[in-house]
Write a protein that binds this DNA or RNA. Structure first.
Lengths: 243, 243
DNA sequence: CGCAACCGCGTACAACGTACCCAGTGGAGG
DNA sequence: CCTCCACTGGGTACGTTGTACGCGGTTGCG
């Protein structure tokens, strides 16, 4: 009960004031964990593996991080920091949201394992908070805060949906050690079977028609994003023609 | 390699044809696992615990389910089945999408642990497929399939964002055995500190203004949903005024 | 100069998913 | 009818995980 306020990782100071100089750091540990997760999937980033990566003993990590769950929170927030939102809001909301969406997509493609670490409870690390500040600022002048939240949720839904699909079809095979051929044998045959059965016309349409081969992934993403931003524009009173 | 096609859980038959009558079933096991997850969180649904719930030995489950990961896929798809989409598309797309959103939200509130089991690779179980068929059918007459996908992703983003926030503030304390008071001490004090610091005006605005106490959760959700459907309406050519 | 507070970390343990093996069983072939 | 064997449920055991605990050494403050 004495350090009840330290239950939250973001309130707990990295190190106590007294004592010898520490050999490692939270940032260093987080970095090593992300490196492993990028290369072998997030489940490969075990405490022992991370410790080995930085040349430490497994239990040494617990001098810096209370638990593995908390370390994953640190990793996720570190990734949020890769989304560059400097200079937002710039005044051009469409440019701001486009840049944000592009940055987010690029980050997810660099670290596809982030798709599997969402927690039911939100975390609010410093990078996440900065993102909220900048992003909510973009439309703050146009709509009340609750509508702003709804619009950002819509935007996030589009970006996340697109990138998830992209990750799974481009092949995030690292997860659970699946090789590309194994994944094709597994998912490809199943999808073929569904399509051939004729019972799932919409699913078939998605699989066969939604991917336009003459457009690059980037272009397809940008095109869909344009439609989403049109939707948002329609919801901004200052930009709506009639009414 | 002989049963390479059985790598996918949805292609693997539940039981071989020959032999004695089985004592349990996939459905029964899935149901028991969901019951435990509802009561104690998804991490409490271990193989031994599930087996005990139905009065079986731990290893017996593996006669029905290849792995725990696959069992979680079964659980997730079973939950998709709780979203009632019979009669869709009805012709009234706004009513259809409203019902879908309500059903989804209700399901998530019944089983909040679903927020933590998203996989990077999609699963496409029978209930999920049915959902895709009905839901994509709603706007199929109005927009091409890729725009339809984008619009549904936006809708999903709004619903998921709302419900996630609702879950965490209404208190999904079961996860990792947090009690309500522990969660308040952890998150409440942290949020208070962020607000009092004055460094996060947007975050503060969200926390203090976005929740309107005179409206019920249902009403707030419905209100925001209305705005999202307005956005979608603006994207449907047949419903657009100008152009 | 002492000494308490810190360090890194080796050992140990409980809990997990699950491979392997066993004795029992009931439906198909004779 | 009997025989057989593919199947059953499940006990035991193994490797891996997160992490509690305690050790001997180090360091900066009084």
């Amino acid at each position: 009960m004495a350090d009840a306020e330290y239950v939250n990782i973001w309130m707990r100071p990295e190190r106590p004031a007294r004592g010898p100089k520490p050999a490692y750091s939270r940032a260093q540990i987080t970095e090593a964990a992300i490196r492993i997760a990028d290369a072998e999937g997030v489940e490969a980033a075990t405490m022992r593996r991370i410790a080995a990566e930085i040349g430490a003993g497994a239990m040494s990590l617990y001098r810096y991080v209370p638990s593995r769950d908390n370390l994953v929170e640190l990793m996720a927030d570190r990734l949020m920091g890769e989304i560059d939102v400097t200079g937002m809001p710039s005044g051009d909301w469409r440019a701001d949201l486009t840049r944000y969406a592009d940055e987010w997509r690029a980050m997810w493609l660099r670290h596809p394992w982030i798709a599997g670490v969402q927690r039911s409870l939100p975390s609010f690390g410093p990078n996440q908070l900065l993102l909220i500040e900048r992003l909510m600022g973009v439309l703050d002048a146009f709509v009340p805060i609750d509508e702003n939240l709804g619009l950002m949720a819509m935007l996030n839904g589009y970006v996340e949906g697109s990138v998830r699909e992209e990750i799974s079809s481009a092949g995030e095979f690292r997860r659970s050690g699946l090789s590309e051929s194994e994944w094709m044998a597994r998912s490809g045959a199943y999808i073929d079977q569904l399509v051939k059965s004729g019972d799932y016309p919409m699913f078939t349409k998605i699989v066969t028609e939604a991917r336009q081969p003459h457009l690059s992934r980037d272009e397809q993403f940008r095109h869909g994003l344009g439609r989403v931003l049109d939707c948002i524009a329609a919801a901004l009173p200052a930009h709506r023609e009639g009414l």
